[in-house]
Design a protein around this nucleic acid. Structure first.
Length: 115
DNA sequence: CATCTGACGACCG
DNA sequence: GCGGTCGCCAGAT
């Protein structure tokens, strides 16, 4: 059950969005157990359809050793997630478990004639 | 059963 | 804003 739950949530993350270890931990009723979540992710077998790269640290910052960090940035950027100085804008790409689109993008693209 | 570690988070200087 | 410390949980030895 343990890590399976984590994987499940991670798999739920929609493309182009990211979440944090803390959020996952909280959703799993493990406040402060973000480390456990991170540990689980570290053991996450690649090639299982688990978008581990969509899991960021607090504040949307990259929390992992190379070369994973670089790979993550690359994958995220490939999904349209803008990264600034190694950090992701959680206000726009932050995704909350079970709270689908809680932080929906502000959609501030071209005004299409009106603001 | 005791101890250390780890892809974390919050706090303090 | 950055770096160091403590606290948290689960797994491995």
């Amino acid at each position: 059950m343990s890590w399976e739950s984590v994987y499940r949530l991670v798999k739920r993350i929609p493309r182009g969005k990211v979440t944090t270890y803390g959020e996952l931990a909280r959703k799993l009723a493990l406040p402060g157990g973000a480390r456990a979540v991170g540990y689980a992710m570290a053991a996450t077998p690649t090639g299982r359809g688990i978008p581990w790269h969509r899991v960021m640290g607090a504040g949307g910052k990259v929390r992992m050793p190379e070369p994973y960090a670089s790979l993550q940035r690359k994958l995220l950027a490939s999904e349209g997630v803008g990264i600034e100085s190694g950090s992701v804008d959680m206000d726009r790409f932050g995704w909350s478990p079970s709270k689908r689109g809680a932080r929906a993008p502000a959609r501030k693209k071209n005004n299409r004639g009106r603001k």
